[in-house]
Design a binder for these strands. Structure first.
Lengths: 190, 190
DNA sequence: CGTCTATTTGAATGTACTCAAAAGCGGTGG
DNA sequence: CCACCGCTTTTGAGTACATTCAAATAGACG
């Protein structure tokens, strides 16, 4: 069962009883996204968060010149959402779509908050992974500010070797904040 | 009382009883930092988080060439910490110091976690402000990737007019990810 | 095999940096 | 009150990193 992946993920941080597992399970929806299909589109109320159990999704911002800037990739065992829309209820500014055929477990913000009331353990779990998320994006921001593109790419390969194999170069470039042409030059020289 | 500022901050998100307030109060330490003095230094175990009640602090990373990159400013009513060290217990990679004479309320990670056990409301509060923190830093990362320096500066002025008045140009430049010389050129018509 | 997309390569360009020097500003002591 | 010191800001010329645009090549997929 794909939900076991989520249970395992949660149990890295807190311990769950069978009852809590089934409670959580009741609050989730399973959904598949075919390659290129959207989970979230800019302008929508994106009140769902997705836990990927198979495949790969990405969240990205399209700037005023039409360029895409990727905030996050989510392969198996990762959560992805437009946190702004999800937590505040405002219109999403991000798009989230599937880079591969993808299976995910969805939870609505409403259900998530209910879950927190019924069982504060889950609030602890999300507090912890949100803390981890902050640390990770802070690191990324500092890397972007302090390193040149070839170094950022080297770090990316080191940190996410699987993504480097699995994703097309355009996507990696849009994550690193450089053009695909320049990434090509980095790969084939320095 | 300076702790009232914190209570007000918390009560934007959850409701506190007097008992809970005094409980929180017992877990906090009041501390002052003179201008240029450190709250956290790279290499330390930075197991305290600070809520600034007066003055201004900054967290920053010093890269291998000795350049400072500012992650966050914290004036009155803001929390600041090396989240990585605070949450994982590892050695800090950031420095945090006072840009002005500063007063802050400190909470140790240990006490914070105790507080969560005694009263899950506080875990909710920190879950919420951590969510808000993610949204804010995600926006900043996307701005850095999609905007030119003059636009980033314009947004900074619009978003933090007080900081723009209150901070020296070198600090703002180190936050925006540009050199002080270039910020000078932007300000004087660029 | 043909079409569509992704990648490679190169020349010209742009954004921001480096380095250096000058000018402004604030605090301190004479 | 003025003179000096240290620090920040300004300004300019030359340079580095990365982009843009265009065209050629390679891959993927029906």
């Amino acid at each position: 069962m794909s939900i076991d992946l989520l249970f395992q993920n949660i149990e890295k941080h807190i311990v769950l009883t069978d009852k809590e597992k089934s409670m959580l399970s009741d609050f989730l929806e399973e959904k598949t996204f075919r390659k290129r299909h959207y989970f979230v589109q800019e302008g929508q109320y994106a009140n769902y968060s997705a836990f990927v159990t198979k495949g790969c999704m990405r969240s990205y911002y399209v700037d005023t010149n039409g360029f895409e800037h990727i905030l996050q990739f989510a392969i198996e065992d990762w959560w992805i959402a437009d946190m702004m829309s999800y937590t505040t209820g405002k219109e999403a500014r991000l798009n989230i779509d599937a880079l591969e055929n993808t299976e995910a477990l969805l939870i609505s913000r409403e259900n998530q908050l209910k879950l927190f009331e019924v069982c504060p353990k889950f609030e602890k779990y999300f507090r912890i992974i949100t803390e981890n998320g902050i640390v990770s994006i802070q690191n990324r921001l500092l890397e972007n500010m302090s390193l040149l593109a070839p170094e950022r790419y080297a770090n990316f390969v080191k940190k996410y070797p699987i993504l480097n194999q699995r994703l097309p170069q355009t996507q990696i470039a849009a994550f690193l904040g450089i053009t695909p042409e320049f990434l090509s030059k980095i790969r084939n020289r320095g």
